[in-house]
């Protein structure tokens, strides 16, 4: 029983780290662009395919390939922001439709190049560890470690560096930030590109655990939105904690109550929490902000 408990917890935390990373990217984009970017999942997908091509066709070492996908998707994000989203900032419905257009384009380009058959990257660490009866693939641990490392890096970056502070200031109030001499235009592009890069890396990691298809981005993006709202908009720490929370809740719910309903537990948690805390777990309670 205790072993089972441990298994659920560990696997939940591993999945949760992915959710947290995706939600972190979504929170950054939402904070700074005011747009629910449905194409965020497609950044994941592009990252996964990029890493796949590098490792399987050019024999590049996986870690290098993952870093390269991060970079490539970051550049892609920058291009996307400059050519599309910047025309629809804080127009959440227009921005949403633009992101849907991007989903259609990216998915179908991937479909044209690689087809719909699932691909996968052979995990560089194929063994399974067993500690105190908890069984977990080493690859999952690697993915977990890298994701958590990156999340910590990003949080510190946002807290400590000049650019990070600029990002947070712009997210809070773009006009004020601009008058304080922050080049908001550049900050927006950089933030979007960083969020994309983060997704690119998560994509490469997911590709070693699950399979790669042109449609693989949909589910993580949906989960990411749930996590972002659960954590409370604008709260980076909230997104991260909520990511782990949803991962663990799903793992326990799926393991102990119903495995087919696994994806539903996160939604139930969200609905229940929003009924009591309409501003999310760690979001700022709006004291009638518009008054």
């Amino acid at each position: 029983m205790l072993e089972q408990f441990g298994n659920f917890l560990v696997h939940g935390l591993v999945t949760g780290s992915m959710y947290a990373a995706v939600a972190l990217g979504l929170t950054l984009t939402y904070g700074i662009l005011g747009i629910l970017n449905f194409a965020h999942g497609e950044m994941l997908m592009v990252g996964a395919y990029f890493a796949f091509v590098l490792t399987s066709q050019f024999g590049v070492n996986f870690l290098l390939a993952a870093a390269a996908s991060m970079l490539a998707v970051g550049v892609l994000g920058w291009i996307i922001e400059r050519t599309t989203f910047r025309f629809a900032r804080h127009e959440h419905l227009n921005g949403l439709v633009i992101s849907l257009g991007l989903v259609a384009i990216l998915q179908n380009i991937a479909l044209a190049i690689w087809g719909a058959d699932p691909l996968s990257i052979p995990p560089p660490l194929p063994r399974t560890l067993e500690v105190w009866g908890i069984r977990i693939g080493e690859q999952r641990l690697l993915a977990f470690g890298l994701t958590v490392g990156l999340i910590i890096f990003f949080s510190l970056f946002l807290k400590k560096t000049r650019l990070g502070k600029g990002i947070r200031a712009t997210a809070q109030n773009a006009h004020v930030a601009a008058t304080l001499g922050i080049r908001t235009e550049r900050v927006v592009a950089v933030t979007f590109s960083l969020a994309a890069a983060l997704a690119g890396l998560v994509g490469a990691l997911i590709a070693t655990i699950y399979t790669i298809t042109p449609f693989m981005g949909g589910l993580p993006a949906m989960k990411g939105f749930v996590v972002m709202i659960l954590g409370g908009l604008g709260s980076v720490g909230g997104s991260i904690l909520a990511g782990f929370l949803v991962g663990v809740v799903e793992s326990f719910g799926g393991g102990m109550i119903s495995s087919i309903f696994k994806d539903g537990f996160g939604f139930v948690a969200l609905i229940l929490i929003l009924i009591f805390r309409p501003w999310g777990l760690f979001g700022q309670r709006p004291e009638r902000e518009d008054v």
Binding site: L36, H92, F225, M228, I229, I260, G264, F267, I271, L274
Partner: peptide
């Protein structure tokens, strides 16, 4: 009645969760 007190993205994602629960119900 249980979601319309929410605003913007909160309302969007909460109603989305209801919608997905409905689909899961049909599926299962």
């Amino acid at each position: 009645a249980s979601t319309l007190h929410l605003k913007g993205a909160y309302l969007a994602i909460c109603t989305f969760a209801f919608s997905e629960l409905f689909r899961l119900l049909l599926d299962n």
